[in-house]
Design a binder for these strands. Structure first.
Length: 587
DNA sequence: GCCGTTTTCGGCCCGACTGTTTTCAGTCG
């Protein structure tokens, strides 16, 4: 784990432990916010910590937090964290993660019943002594049991590429319900995060009850967790995916405010509300309201909102540029002077530079692949089958590759309306050397160099390895740079700033592999790459026709990192792209 | 513990739903 991630985890745990000790909630919140601030940093916290002012200038990090950060950088420990660990049983933090159990309840279980772990929780559930606790009845107990079972079944967050199609089906279904006006998915899914905790669906309707009934009665609903007039929650089984889905029903006039609220992030919303208050207004999911006297919230007193129908008008009324959903993470986008970047879109992408055919582990021929790419409006497709070391993927040895190049050239002459480039996805060996010699690499139009094995290297070794590949004069693109698989394999953890700086220096593009299992580079690494001046490639790593559809996940990831078309080689016109590729072939 | 268009103290976002309660605490997002 990087220093940033380690420190963020420490502050997160401190927040949880302080909460369990019944500490002041604002102090708890300050620790949680510091954790998020550290996690969101694009630079190495250890480097930033060298300059005292730089640390405290970060939102959410004050003098005391800065001191703890420096203590960690110097000694590898935060003594306050150690003290808390001595006071709070480690297993109690897992109990706190059980849905429906919050700090008050867990603290009570701990103090009254000696619960220090999930096993202890199960014990008081089984012997019934949990019922001795105040506010603990049969239904609550049953809900805790089900939460435990659910947590055991789906302990991890759902991948973006699994969640988005489910959400789209829910939206399509609700759009058909009579009286429904607008439907949208929101939450971390709309923000394009690589994994999603649950699905948030928003509906405006003349008849809220019909929408609610359609939602809770939908195919795949295993349990209705809550069903009120304005809000419903269900547990849903869709294929192998088990997920919670929340439905919120609002008046169409408040759709924008609700969408904004439901899209989050929570931190972004908090900043917006603080901004509204400074401007003499108040913001909630019903709209942006002028500040008025009254006990009840403004929407219940008939106060007319300043803005509520669309997100655009609310941002405008707050005196801000529109913030694309992918950038709503409280990373400076609510500050004065922030401007909306022209982020890359799916329709901008005109070339695929990473694709496999039946020669290695793809399922399409060269011509079939080219026709798919052409059908999507692409001007260029690169055939980049695996190199010889990828034995399982039927990687090509030198002789097969030479023959393959000929076949690609021949196909390029035959298929009109698209350029088919001869390339290779060349393995980067553990030491950073490549799987073919330079003479052969020089014959290829495109070289994507990717790590496939030895993915557990230490940071130092991994950095050295990738730096060598990036600096190789015949390499165009560093493919799936870390080799991570979401929820399955951590992959390499190189010093991304160093890799990005070298990529910028040598004119090598860093790939955002769009496959939803990979999304590699990840969002924060895209940001680092851009900050260091590197170019990015949005590649689908095509093995079959459907893989072209993975593009949108990569685009979302790129947008989260702030990727604009000018920095993404796949959006360039044919002439510019081919010229750039040829530059690494001496002209 | 952080922060400042209310600036070094005194606040700190806002609402829905459930379950156990007779008016609300706890949790969630």
């Amino acid at each position: 784990m990087s220093t940033n991630a380690e420190l963020a985890t420490i502050f997160e745990r401190m927040a949880a432990m302080l909460e369990l000790l019944g500490e002041d909630r604002f102090r708890v919140n300050a620790h949680a916010r510091a954790a998020r601030a550290i996690e969101a940093l694009s630079g190495d916290v250890a480097e930033i910590a060298e300059d005292e002012k730089a640390l405290t200038s970060i939102d959410g990090i004050g003098a005391k937090t800065a001191k703890k950060i420096r203590e960690y950088v110097e000694t590898g420990r935060v003594h306050e964290h150690d003290e808390l660990l001595a006071k709070v049983p480690a297993g109690l933090l897992e109990v706190l993660d059980v849905p429906g159990l919050g700090p008050k309840t867990v603290r009570m279980m701990w103090q009254e019943k000696g619960v220090e772990s999930i096993a202890d929780l199960k014990r008081i559930l089984d012997d019934g002594s949990i019922l001795d606790l105040p506010r603990m009845g049969e239904k609550t107990v049953q809900n805790i049991r089900e939460s435990l079972a659910f947590a055991a079944k789906s302990s991890e967050r759902i991948r973006l590429g699994d969640a988005l199609p489910i959400a789209e089906r829910l939206v399509a279904r609700l759009e058909k319900v009579k009286g429904v006006q607008r439907v949208a998915y929101a939450g971390s899914l709309r923000r394009g995060r690589e994994t999603i905790g649950d699905l948030d669906i928003l509906v405006s309707a003349k008849d809220g009850a019909a929408a609610r009934e359609a939602f809770t009665g939908m195919e795949g609903v295993e349990k209705v967790l809550a069903s009120g007039e304005k809000k419903s929650s269900v547990r849903l089984q869709a294929g192998k995916i088990s997920v919670q889905a929340d439905l919120r029903v609002v008046d169409d006039a408040a759709f924008g405010a609700a969408l904004m609220y439901f899209t989050g992030s929570k931190e972004h919303n908090v900043r917006l509300r603080e901004r509204a208050i400074r401007m003499g207004m108040t913001l909630n999911e019903y709209g942006l309201f002028p500040e008025t006297e009254g006990e009840k919230p403004p929407q219940e007193r008939g106060v007319k909102p300043v803005a509520s129908r669309t997100e655009e008008e609310i941002y405008q009324a707050l005196g801000m540029a529109f913030v694309p959903a992918e950038l709503r993470e409280d990373q400076g986008e609510v500050s004065d002077g922030w401007e909306t970047p022209e982020l890359v879109e799916v329709s901008d992408v005109r070339a695929e530079l990473h694709a496999h055919t039946t020669a290695s582990d793809g399922v399409m021929s060269i011509v079939e692949l080219a026709q798919c790419a052409k059908a999507r409006g692409f001007h260029t497709i690169a055939v980049t089958d695996h190199s010889k070391s990828s034995v399982i993927a039927h990687g090509l040895d030198e002789a097969r590759l030479r023959k393959h190049i000929e076949q690609v050239r021949e196909a390029n002459g035959r298929v009109k309306g698209i350029t088919i480039l001869a390339g290779s996805e060349v393995d980067i060996h553990a030491d950073g050397s490549l799987d073919y010699d330079d003479e052969l690499l020089a014959e290829l139009d495109v070289v994507v160099a990717s790590p496939h094995a030895a993915l557990r290297q230490e940071t130092k070794e991994a950095t050295k390895r990738l730096l060598r590949a990036v600096a190789h004069p015949l390499v165009h693109v560093l493919g799936h740079p870390t080799g991570r698989i979401i929820n399955r394999r951590e992959g390499l953890q190189p010093d991304m700033a160093e890799v990005a700086a070298a990529a910028a220096e040598h004119g090598t593009a860093l790939e955002i592999n769009c496959n939803h299992l990979r999304l590699d580079l990840r969002d924060r690494d895209v940001r680092i790459a851009l900050e260091h001046g590197a170019l990015l490639a949005l590649n689908c790593d095509v093995h079959a026709e459907d893989d072209f559809d993975e593009l949108r996940y990569g685009v979302l990831t790129g947008r989260r990192g702030g990727l604009t078309p000018d920095r993404c080689i796949n959006t360039w016109g044919a002439k510019k792209l081919h010229g750039w590729l040829k530059k690494k072939r001496g002209g």
